[in-house]
Amino acid sequence: MTGAVMNPAWALLAPVVLGVLALAGAALNGVFVARAEGRPALSGAARPVLEVMRLMRQRRRVTVAADRLLWRIGGMALLVIALLKTAVIPLGPWILADISVGIVWFNAMDVMVWAGMWLIGWGANSAHALAGGYRFLAQAVSYELPLMFALVTPAVAAHSLRVSEVVDAQQDLWFVVWMPVAFLVFCGSVLAFSAWGPFATAAGADIAGGILTEVSGVDRLLIMAGRYALLATGAAFAVALFLGGGSGPLLPDWLWTIVKTLVLLAGFIAVSRRLSAIRPDRLAEVAWIVVLPLALLQTLVVSIIVAVRG
């Protein structure tokens, strides 16, 4: 599948696919919320669409002395970053930009989320929002290094940072089988950089919504959509790195990619609801003393296996 030259016009399709995946994630979350509140599940599934319509018509809330430029940049950043990530994520046999450093590109983009989240918190000139931004950065320094080693591990096994070659290297055996720790660390990091589930303290109710305290209307819509889009791209990238990409029986490659991505995305959303919030200040010690050595050990084991097999 390497080197398939694509018409750049397909880039226009990527946002559509991403949008559908993000909407599916939001709908599923709506179902869970509706069930928890004892409402019919279908009303929950329709919730995201209604929410989009509501936010599109809502007037912007204005705060005193807001840093409007940085606030707007932060607000649109998450969605833009998710779109930039799709450039290196394969959909079956197709990939928009199969660059030689695809994995590093994904990593660079998820570091951009640091800036985006903090700017959302900074821009409003509101204490709660700023505390949310700081919380996210405190969390980010905890998850980023384990995430980097989780990304490195499949690259070591495939001898390449090119995403298509990582997918090809899983013809015989999916990487999730012999690097489960890296897979779990990556999945946890996806939740963390999307500020989702147990890692959503940056937007926690205990600080009045944190980074989301003052955002309203279209800004809020872009941020919420951006978080779902980041979750979806994270799931899709995990499929490429650990779950064999598009490989599978009967169905075509691209359909397998989407099916696997949807299953993983549903897993993210379902599991997140069962976990309690993790305080960023408590996370640091666990991430650096337990998770990081585990991730390093996983990389070491994989490196030894690769070296022995030659």
């Binding site: 030689s100 450093v101 660079a108 570091v111 640091w114 800036a115 320094v141």
Partner: peptide, 17 residues
């Protein structure tokens, strides 16, 4: 490619901190 993308990664991270 590698140095360019790593520069972006490192610098955005650095500036955020």
């Amino acid at each position: 490619d590698y140095i360019g993308v790593i520069t972006i990664l490192m610098m955005v991270m650095e500036m955020a901190i």
